[in-house]
């Protein structure tokens, strides 16, 4: 059975502005939303101090997990290979950063860490014995515009096969199933002078998975104005993958990111497909977590309030409906 979790990336504004603390967000996620799991960016909403919380901090964290009825699902890791101005960290130094995060994840009870897509496969490969030691899996995030057939990823998969380790895998991000601009982004464009018929044309093209270069040339040829081109440009780093691709990589999936931008009042995502990808995940017997990962904050203007908590609630409702629990 697929389990529901929430990435606290979704709550970035609530935490940044001081409106909600880590504990309050855990309470909301566990008690109000009834999610099974939580995902944090260890360097965004740290438990105690990153990367070495005290034992008392870890005990407090575990107390919150119990109290609010949530399980650690995934911890997002960053490897800062540009740590110093004049040099790039060596392979060994990057593996030390991976070890730092694997150790922290293990202390906090996370079974998986999300590894950023641009991290070199050599870093993950060299970290396998450490991951096995700590009992924490490493999942490389496949995030649009990356695809599973890109060489960067096929080489990763070859490395995983060669290693034979269960501690390496993939975290697909549902942004790869985006089919049109978010409703909120379209509304913003319409307010800035985009015309409805041109927005319709753009959506027709994106729904047909038109490559970006062709998308912009077709829009320009149709006489698109600045607001319409701006809307088209929001697809510059969006490359669609067919949901069935999840079947091909089934054995590698260690966690899923349910990226979303705009949930409407009926708890429908306005731009990313969920039904079919979740059906495929169900068919392949995926029994890990999918995290709600809200990224619509930047679609709100300076005087508009972005209700992250409500957006996440709607997304969890949708997942509940589609997963069946």
């Amino acid at each position: 059975m697929i389990k529901r979790s929430v990435s606290f990336y979704s709550y970035q504004e609530s935490y940044y502005t001081g409106r909600k603390s880590l504990e309050e967000l855990m309470e909301y996620t566990g008690k109000t939303l009834g999610a099974d799991g939580i995902e944090i960016l260890a360097e965004q909403t740290p438990v105690g101090s990153f990367p070495n919380p005290s034992d008392a901090d870890v005990d407090m964290w575990k107390g919150w997990l119990d109290k609010y009825g949530v399980t650690p699902a995934c911890m997002d890791s960053f490897i800062d290979w540009m740590l110093y101005k004049n040099s790039i960290l060596t392979l060994k130094e990057q593996v030390m950063q991976m070890e730092r995060d694997l150790k922290l994840a293990s202390r906090l009870g996370f079974p998986v860490i999300r590894v950023l897509c641009p991290v070199r496969k050599e870093v993950m490969e060299a970290s396998i014995p450490i991951a096995e030691h700590y009992g924490v899996k490493m999942g490389i995030e496949v995030h649009s515009p990356m695809t599973f057939t890109a060489r960067w990823i096929t080489e990763y998969l070859e490395m995983m096969d060669r290693s034979g380790s269960k501690y390496v895998g993939i975290v697909p991000d549902f942004g790869i199933f985006q089919v049109r601009p978010a409703k909120k982004r379209i509304e913003n464009a319409l307010r800035s002078g985009a015309r409805q018929e041109m927005v319709d044309l753009l959506c027709e093209l994106t729904e047909a998975h038109t490559p970006f270069a062709e998308l912009t040339s077709r829009m320009t040829a149709a006489g698109a104005n600045a607001a319409e081109i701006g809307l088209a440009n929001s697809f510059a780093r969006t490359v669609y993958s067919e949901p069935k691709v999840l079947r091909d990589i089934a054995k590698y999936i260690v966690h899923c990111h349910g990226k979303f931008y705009d949930m409407d009042e009926n708890c429908c995502e306005s731009c990313i497909e969920y039904e079919e990808p979740l059906r495929v995940l169900h068919e392949i017997g995926y029994d890990g977590f999918i995290s709600s990962e809200y990224e619509g904050q930047s679609l709100f203007g300076v005087d508009e309030f972005c209700d992250e908590l409500e957006q996440v609630r709607r997304h969890q409702e949708m997942l509940k409906h589609l997963i069946g629990r």
Binding site: Y16, L41, Q44, P46, F78, D80, L83, Y84
Partner: peptide, 15 residues
């Protein structure tokens, strides 16, 4: 100022 990024960073990353 709060950090103009979506997570905290090492001080050496302030360029």
């Amino acid at each position: 100022t709060k950090i103009p990024y979506y997570r905290g960073v090492s001080l050496s990353l302030i360029d």
